[in-house]
Write a protein that binds this DNA or RNA. Structure first.
Ligand SMILES: [Mn+2]
Ligand SMILES: [Mn+2]
Ligand SMILES: [Zn+2]
Ligand SMILES: [Zn+2]
Lengths: 139, 139
DNA sequence: AAATTATTTAGAATGACTCTAAAAAGAGAT
DNA sequence: ATCTCTTTTTAGAGTCATTCTAAATAATTT
């Protein structure tokens, strides 16, 4: 299991400021979730969490905040083949994903743990790759 | 460049019947495009082609037909990271894709030309992979 | 040809997300 | 603190690809 450090309000605030993002109440709250507690959440999951943890928040603010965090480089996004929903990922390093087909859970796979050999025509100059492994995660 | 064989009406008709799909006028026409001429088209591109090549066709029929062909195993679908649109692929063998970032063109990459080595924890049992290579295709 | 079944169709509905424009909150200067 | 200016939040409308609905048409079977 991933063991992410808890982030205090102060730390989140500093992170936001360093990224050039004004640390509003809503943004700080959402960051506590997406940069820490949340594991590859969708906007819907972020909204559900936010509605429990803030007295009031609008759908639009959740989307605005997530987009702001993406633009600031604190989050990245991707989609899985089987869903329409964008997934927000606080792991901004180069990595791939493993999808447990039974549970739908997603696991990060470090880029350094994967090596891809291509014997394809030399006209293809590869700059980056997106890989989703699908299978079963056992115990 | 991909050099796909032209398919006659009769051949398409047979293909559809073998796949258990009733060969209607609309389906035969769309098949001539997606199984032959078309290269990773979207539903929109299929619609445009169909509107030129049939006196009349409805949007719904294009989607219905494409879904029928997918269910019959004659097409498969996927999406690219940067677009909302489903891409229909007549190559139903195991393969990956290369996206030329300059032009947006897609190229098939044979599975046998790619080998992936994973040094990931043994709890991950991989059944399949989806890979999109991104880069530049030169001349 | 009549009856039955499958397909096509126009238009409404859906769902995730973005846009609009007005209200509220925050920042900076006094 | 107050005034001013800028940024953020918000509710609700709008968008876009795709699916659904239910009626019309076409194909197949009897
Ligand atoms: Mn953005
Ligand atoms: Mn389907
Ligand atoms: Zn990740
Ligand atoms: Zn392909």
């Amino acid at each position: 299991m991933k063991n992410k450090a808890f982030l205090s309000t102060d730390l989140v605030q500093k992170k936001l400021q360093e990224a050039g993002v004004q640390p509003t109440l809503q943004r700080i709250a959402i960051c506590k979730y997406v940069l820490c507690e949340g594991d590859h959440p969708t906007a819907e999951q972020v909204t559900k969490w936010a509605e429990k943890n803030l007295e009031k928040i609008s759908q639009a603010t959740v989307y605005n905040t997530l987009n702001t965090l993406v633009d600031a480089g604190l989050l990245r996004t991707f989609k899985l083949p089987h869903s329409e929903k964008v997934i927000y990922d606080c792991n901004t390093h180069d990595h791939y994903h493993f999808l447990d087909e039974a549970s739908g859970s997603l696991y990060d796979i470090e880029a350094k743990d994967v090596s891809v050999e291509m014997k394809m025509p030399h006209q293809f100059k590869v700059n980056s790759m997106e890989i989703v492994f699908k299978g079963n995660f056992k115990s």
